[in-house]
Design a protein around this nucleic acid. Structure first.
Lengths: 218, 218
DNA sequence: TCGTTACGATACGGCCGCGTTCCGGAAGTC
DNA sequence: GACTTCCGGAACGCGGCCGTATCGTAACGA
């Protein structure tokens, strides 16, 4: 019985090229227009695709948005785990901070932070997909730091991560204001050494290996 | 020749009550809806005022928004400078972080941070009006800390301010995520004490008054 | 070749906020 | 009391995006 296999596709198959074009265009629009102004029409136009082609794949605006975030995952490589721990620490923090306006991923991150108040669920999903992994990577590096003896074993690494990530986000968001350009290196030095006075002799000082890897473009 | 003085107002004067109602309603809408969804219609409805009454005062949406920000200034008292330095430090930082969702000003702050990507100019003006003064207050307290001997005189206070404010903003924005509830106190302790290991004798422990590195200077 | 499905393009009705303009009435000045 | 201006409310046309439907065409399986 050639009883046509139920899963046998008939007719013209969906264009994988259109799939890609839609996802790419969605990220572009998200980066440029933000979530509030994210419209299916804009995505279709940017992708060079009919709206019907989008609605054939997604139920509506929100699904397109969600799919775009999924697709983003591949777009954002985690900082490579190489170099000494201090270097890696700097790289991870820079990977949160640096690509702000320079890369599409950075602009999207800004837009999502932006939408936090209006779309808390979206923020949560972004945290889970993008910021969370970086934070875990950071905690991992700090844990190595404990093993290697340059991080105080008594401190709560989650708090440390917040202390380090916070300024990165801050500098990211306020990149246009007078406080803009404090090097990541200084933040790390300060966090490691502490602000309070004591016997002195900053842990960092003029760390010889300060050169920060040329932040991989998105 | 009672040549009517040119500045003599004739006819019904504008209602100052309407002025107030519009400003208040604008802030409410801004806090609840955000900048993107900030509509003149919503403000008018909330203020119990005709749209014409608003357009008689402002040229359009943007002017209403700007006026609302001006009006916000009075609404946001700076943290009072009392208590010991450490207490004041905590108060200033909490004044940035805590009122997030609890107060209208806090919600507005979140909304403005939100709009940063789409309205960088708006962010700048908000920085100037609200965050800037708090940051200066913070730097002032830190400077006293230097005088009093519990802040390292060699560190750049601007960087310190960023190291402290950053986590506050971060915790503010990500208040819905797993990292939510780290006490401000812990951030301060950590920033003061530093993460790196040294002769140690962690400032933390169960210090009652945040024993600021007992300048033991051993 | 024929049937089926996807393609890009375009048009549709619906909704909503815009900015404008009318209204009848109220609140002031002269 | 006459006059002027503002009041709140309601309607208008405009433009944008929504989600859907309908074109003629293109790509594939049987």
């Amino acid at each position: 019985m050639t009883a046509a296999r139920a899963d046998a596709p008939r007719g013209r198959p969906r264009s994988v090229e259109a799939d890609r074009a839609i996802a790419e265009a969605a990220l572009d629009v998200l980066a440029d227009q933000g979530i509030a102004d994210f419209s299916v029409e804009a995505v279709a136009h940017r992708a060079g695709v009919g709206k019907a082609t989008i609605y054939r794949r997604y139920a509506g605006r929100d699904e397109v948005l969600a799919a775009a975030l999924d697709y983003l995952h591949d777009d954002l490589p985690l900082a490579p785990p190489q170099g000494c721990a201090r270097e890696r620490l700097e790289m991870v923090l820079d990977s949160i901070r640096t690509p702000m306006m320079a890369t599409r991923s950075g602009r999207i991150m800004a837009q999502v932070i932006s939408a936090s108040a209006q779309h808390p669920d979206f923020l949560a999903s972004f945290y889970e997909r993008v910021l969370g992994p970086r934070r875990r990577l950071l905690v991992g590096i700090l844990r190595e730091g404990v093993d290697e003896g340059w991080v105080d074993p008594q401190v709560d690494l989650d708090v440390v991560a917040t202390l380090l990530v916070g300024p990165m986000i801050f500098l990211k968001v306020w990149h246009g204001t007078p406080v803009a350009s404090i090097p990541t290196e200084q933040i790390i030095d300060l966090a490691l050494g502490g602000i309070g006075v004591r016997d002195r002799r900053r842990a960092g000082g003029a760390a010889p290996l300060g050169d920060l890897a040329p932040a991989s473009d998105s």
